[in-house]
């Protein structure tokens, strides 16, 4: 725990990111407790500017915007986290199998991956969304990850191909360790930093994807969703033509931007968390490690230290 804290406090921006993420997570977890009921319609409070009673103003129906944002967080985060986890798990499994289990498995899996990669993902998602009908979050997350695991699988595969050539993999095989052991304990930990970073990026992708689907209106409306708010703001409220519904348009956009910023700012902290090589300050003295010496010189960057006799 102290390690986590030390890594996050190393840079100010990481703390900002952490704060943003915690804020949205808090909204998702405790939002319904703060606002047990959906904001009520007030026909004579349409399009109010921000005030103490309505921190973010009101919408076309006179509803308070802030509770809508807070309540929307749960659904956005829930689907996004699930979609990102699906993407990363599927991508990692396919990538590991293709990279390690030999040329036949590799060829089969990579052709399938390529197929998914070549289909335009928005089109795929739209078609799936319309035909399957996204009645619950689980299906929605599945559909969102359906189109995005391919890139991950390809990246993981190529990393496995490079890691498996490293000497320590051979050493482990030489010690008679099982194939499963080599994959899980030797190769996977080396991919972890990438996987985690990709998880964060997949998270941002899923947020856009999900909000986008609601915005386009191809999924059944749920009132408490940022995408739906955007849809109403641009469509029914005419935010494109008049300034009166500015707050209704800007609030979900702001929420999305802040959430994405939070994720991105935390990414490098999380990367450092899972990669011990980046955690220099935690270790003992490494004053004469040969690998760590890289020097600038008038001739450009020249690593010193014998690596390859």
């Amino acid at each position: 725990m102290t390690t986590v804290w030390r890594i996050f406090t190393k840079r100010k921006m990481r703390l900002v990111g952490l704060f943003l993420l915690l804020m949205f997570t808090g909204m998702a977890l405790f939002g319904p407790l703060i606002y047990p009921q959906a904001p009520a319609v007030h026909p004579n409070e349409l399009y109010l500017p921000p005030s103490w009673n309505h921190l973010l103003g009101t919408d076309y129906a006179g509803r308070n915007i802030l509770p809508q944002i807070v309540l929307g967080a749960r659904n956005v985060l829930y689907v996004a986290v699930m979609a990102a986890v699906f993407t990363v798990v599927l991508g990692t499994l396919v990538g590991l199998a293709a990279g390690y289990l030999g040329p036949v498995v590799d060829a089969v899996l990579m052709r399938i991956t390529d197929m998914f990669l070549t289909i335009p993902s928005i089109a795929l998602i739209l078609i799936l969304a319309v035909t399957i009908g996204m009645s619950n979050y689980f299906v929605m997350a599945g559909i969102l990850s359906f189109a995005s695991w391919g890139g991950m699988a390809r990246a993981i595969r190529s990393m496995v191909l490079s890691v498996r050539e490293r000497s320590f993999v051979e050493v482990s095989q030489g010690l008679g360790m099982s194939r499963w052991y080599v994959i899980v304990k030797e190769i996977l930990p080396n991919l972890l930093p990438y996987i985690v970073v990709h998880l964060m990026l997949a998270l941002t992708g899923a947020v856009y994807g999900e909000v986008g689907l609601f915005f386009l209106g191809v999924v059944p409306f749920k009132a408490d969703n940022w995408g739906v708010m955007l849809n109403f703001a641009t469509g029914g409220s005419g935010a494109m033509y008049s300034t009166q519904s500015l707050m209704f348009l800007a609030s979900p956009i702001l929420a999305i931007v802040l959430l994405q910023t939070g994720i991105v700012l935390c990414t490098d902290a999380v990367n450092e968390l899972v990669d011990p090589r980046l955690r220099n300050s935690l270790g003992g003295a490494n004053s004469h490690g040969r690998t760590s010496r890289r020097r600038q010189s008038p001739l450009g960057s020249v690593p010193v230290g014998s690596r390859n006799p």
Binding site: S167, F168, V171, P189, P276, R277, R307
Partner: peptide, 19 residues
């Protein structure tokens, strides 16, 4: 593997860096 063991050349590559 319990008959012959290989000690590889490069001590930097022969140990998994993240364990």
């Amino acid at each position: 593997s319990r008959v012959v063991q290989l000690i590889p050349q490069d001590p930097y590559a022969a140990i998994n860096p993240v364990r």
